[in-house]
């Protein structure tokens, strides 16, 4: 466990040195521009616009990072053969995987926290102050983070047995499918075909159900998010990540390194 922590810390350091956090500059500019703009054009809805825009940007930037960096976590080390010397240390392969996962999760957490701070700044600019009901926005950010963790675990799982390109496609595909999980679930009902219904149901339960994680609209309108949903999503993300990482470990532990 301690060794996974060592790997995680180095993964974070790599992201920082590779200037991954520069995306924050882009986000900051976007928020400033949005804050200035909505202040001029809208009457009364600027608070909704700024939160919707901010959370969407936080989610999109996070997903892009989770997919692209996530897929490279293991495959880059195999391709460059930096893994050889590392695995010759007393590090088990599952510790390596867990460390890689935790390192990117930490990177995303720091990145997301910074963006959330930026969003809070923009809100403060627009509203003139921050209020208690703005906490809903914080919960939305937390859900985005949970979603990112699931995406990273999937990217890691795929990259353990297939090429980076295919891993990227699979992860991105699963993410999109996961966003539309309820619609997929509804396919069978709509068509009234029992067989199709069973397949669609089975498939949709395999998918990460990201629908529950999207509370951007609720947060934009400052509707309180039920504590039950917070608990449920937290548990769901933890179980999903655990299953994906276990699968990744099982595959990776048997893998011959080129």
């Amino acid at each position: 466990m301690k060794r996974a922590g060592i790997v995680a810390w180095n993964t974070f350091r790599e992201a920082v040195r590779d200037r991954v956090l520069y995306n924050l500059v882009f986000f900051a500019l976007l928020m400033i521009a949005a804050a200035l703009l909505v202040g001029q054009i809208s009457i009364g809805i600027e608070q909704i616009v700024i939160v919707t825009l901010g959370l969407s940007a936080i989610s999109l930037i996070g997903i892009l990072m989770a997919v692209f960096i996530g897929v490279g976590l293991v495959s880059k080390e195999m391709e460059k053969r930096t893994l050889y010397a590392l695995l010759a240390k007393p590090v088990r392969r599952w510790e390596f995987l867990l460390g890689k996962f935790a390192g990117l999760a930490l990177t995303l957490a720091v990145n997301t926290a910074a963006m959330a701070t930026g969003l809070a700044g923009a809100m403060w600019l627009v509203q003139g102050s921050l209020r208690a009901e703005d906490a809903a926005v914080l919960v939305a950010v937390y859900f985005i983070l949970l979603k990112l963790a699931i995406v990273v675990s999937l990217a890691l799982l795929f990259s353990c047995f297939t090429t980076p390109l295919l891993s990227t496609l699979f992860t991105a595909g699963l993410y999109v499918a996961g966003v539309f999980a309820p619609e997929i679930r509804a396919i069978g009902k709509v068509t009234g075909n029992a067989a199709l219904d069973a397949v669609a149901m089975g498939f949709s339960y395999l998918l990460p159900n990201f629908d529950n994680f999207n509370v951007i609209a609720a947060a934009a309108h400052r509707r309180a998010i039920p504590g039950m949903l917070v608990a449920q999503n937290t548990l769901y993300a933890a179980v999903y990540c655990a299953i994906a990482l276990t699968g990744a470990t099982m595959i990776f532990s048997r893998r011959n390194l080129k």
Partner: peptide, 10 residues
């Protein structure tokens, strides 16, 4: 201790 062939590091 192990030195890989044509080693490459971070």
């Amino acid at each position: 201790g192990y030195l890989p062939e044509q080693p490459y590091f971070y």
